[in-house]
């Protein structure tokens, strides 16, 4: 359930929604973190639901002492009105038995909010790629037919690769078996995409093949890829990296080293 932080509920009409799928290496979530912290997006509400495992912490995007003490919850919505951009950040895994319910909740919220399009940032297991997927770039996209109607040209110009369908039974030549969409480790990505196709929603998935580990570089790759399409930042890689790493990314590999060790 979306709960607005302001007295009046925010208007998302014609906004682009960017959201992560909780997936391998949390790449989508990290990329969304970069968007929120770099574009100084403001929080407009919470997604309060029993489908996510509860967690709480202070402001993950704190820039100074004054704004550090601010409670943040597992799923929150941010906007940058001047860019017509809204972002849903998800910070916790989905309760295993409730992923379908969560998908339905998201779908109905997206529909009722009037977003012009939704972009899901996701990832998939690199080790499960087949031969054709191993070639070239690890980035893929998926777009629903209704999004393609308006954006086919733009996507073509970008020269992106669409996510390949893989044979249902690899190695067997069965003409009747249709190749299927397979996103291992992608969480609700496939479900969201197929639901959106069925319900005529304008939705795109940008995903990256990766493995678990230090996924910070993957997040930059994905967010730059998104920027090629949306042009949120001009030339993010000229004059160094313009994406701002949030304070919550510190100590990703644990505390400092005990000095007594040396």
């Amino acid at each position: 359930m979306f709960i607005s932080l302001l007295n009046a509920s925010p208007c998302f009409k014609d906004f682009t929604l960017v959201m992560p799928a909780v997936a391998v290496g949390n790449v989508g979530q990290l990329a969304v973190d970069l968007l929120v912290s770099t574009l100084n997006m403001s929080r407009v509400g919470y997604m309060h639901t029993d489908c996510l495992i509860p967690m709480a912490g202070n402001n993950p995007y704190a820039t100074c002492k004054e704004d550090a003490e601010e409670l943040h919850t597992p799923a929150e919505v941010y906007t940058a009105a001047e860019l017509n951009l809204a972002v849903l950040q998800i910070r916790a895994p989905i309760v295993q038995t409730k992923s379908k319910k969560f998908r339905q909740l998201l779908m109905s919220w997206i529909k009722s909010s009037g977003f012009s399009r939704t972009i899901v940032l996701s990832s998939s297991h690199a080790y499960q790629r087949d031969d054709q997927q191993l070639q070239d770039t690890p980035l893929r996209y998926l777009a629903t037919p209704s999004l393609l109607k308006g954006s086919a040209e733009a996507l073509k110009e970008l020269g992106w690769r669409e996510m390949e369908r893989v044979p249902a039974f690899p190695g067997l030549t069965d003409a009747s078996a249709e190749p299927r969409l397979h996103i291992p480790g992608g969480g609700i990505t496939k479900g969201l995409y197929t639901d959106s196709c069925a319900e005529d929603l304008r939705l795109a998935v940008l995903l990256l093949f990766c493995s678990e580990g230090d996924n910070v570089p993957d997040a930059f790759t994905l967010v730059n890829h998104l920027n090629d399409w949306l042009h949120l930042l001009d030339n993010p890689n000229i004059h160094g990296n313009k994406w701002k790493i949030p304070t919550s990314w510190s100590l990703l590999f644990g505390s400092g080293i005990p000095p007594a060790l040396f």
Binding site: A23, P93, S99, I183, P184, G185, E212
Partner: peptide, 8 residues
């Protein structure tokens, strides 16, 4: 942290 899509 990966989640299986086939569960559903």
């Amino acid at each position: 942290r990966a989640v299986e899509e086939d569960d559903e």
